[in-house]
Simulated assay, not measured.
Amino acid sequence: MRYAAILDRLNALGAAKWDIYYRAQALEAAGHDIIDLTIGNPDVPAPEPLIEAAVTALRAGRTEYSDGRGEPALRAALARRYSDSTGREITPAQILCFPGTQTALYAVMTGLAEPGTEVLVGDPMYATYEGVIRASGAEPVPVPLRPERGFRLSAEDLAARVTPRTRALLLNSPQNPTGAVLRAEDIAAIGEIARAHDLWIVADEVYDELIFSGAPFASPLADPALAERTVVVSSISKSHAAPGFRSGWAVLPEEAAARLAPLSDTMLFGNQPFIADATALAVSAPSATARGMAARLSARAQRLAERLEAGPLKVNRPEAGMFALIDIRATGMSDAAYAADLLEKTGVALMPGSVFGPSIAGWVRLALTVPDAKLDEAITRILTHAERHMRAPSRAEA
Rank of each mutant, 00 (worst) to 15 (best):
G31A: 03
D33C: 06
N41P: 09
P352N: 06
E254L: 05
T384G: 15
L252K: 04
R165K: 15
S287K: 10
Y106A: 11
E309S: 09
L199M: 07
E254Y: 02
F151M: 01
A79V: 00
A104S: 10
A104W: 05
P318C: 07
R246T: 02
F269P: 06
A349P: 11
L383T: 07
A215P: 08
R165Q: 13
S354F: 01
E319V: 01
A349G: 09
P177H: 05
A12S: 14
M267G: 05
L281C: 04
N172F: 10
F245L: 08
S85M: 15
G68R: 14
K374Y: 13
N41Q: 13
R388G: 14
E114Q: 15
D198P: 11
V141E: 00
A330Y: 09
E64C: 09
S394Q: 12
L304R: 07
E306V: 04
A261Q: 08
Q102K: 14
E185I: 01
R88Y: 10
E130H: 11
D372K: 12
F212N: 00
I51R: 14
L170Y: 13
W363Y: 14
P99N: 08
L368F: 09
S247L: 09
A184Y: 13
G347Q: 06
V121P: 04
S213L: 13
E156C: 03
Y126S: 11
E148M: 11
P243N: 03
G116D: 08
G14E: 02
S298E: 15
H389V: 10
I90Y: 01
P115K: 11
E185N: 12
K314N: 03
I95L: 12
I6Q: 13
A305R: 15
A73D: 13
R300Y: 05
G353D: 02
M293A: 12
D376S: 12
L221S: 03
S85K: 15
I201R: 09
Y207A: 05
V251A: 05
A301D: 03
I90K: 03
V231D: 00
A257G: 01
V141T: 11
T331C: 08
F269W: 15
S154C: 09
A107H: 06
A60S: 15
A12V: 12
R59D: 11
R69W: 02
A215R: 12
G68I: 06
A113W: 07
E148L: 10
G111I: 00
L10E: 00
D372R: 13
A189S: 13
A278C: 10
L366Q: 09
N176V: 04
A4G: 15
L304P: 06
G321D: 00
L342C: 02
S85C: 12
A203L: 10
A135L: 12
L74T: 02
T289V: 09
H385K: 11
F274I: 02
V355Y: 01
T384S: 14
V162M: 06
P286S: 05
I95C: 05
R229M: 03
R161E: 00
S359F: 03
D335F: 07
A203S: 13
T279N: 08
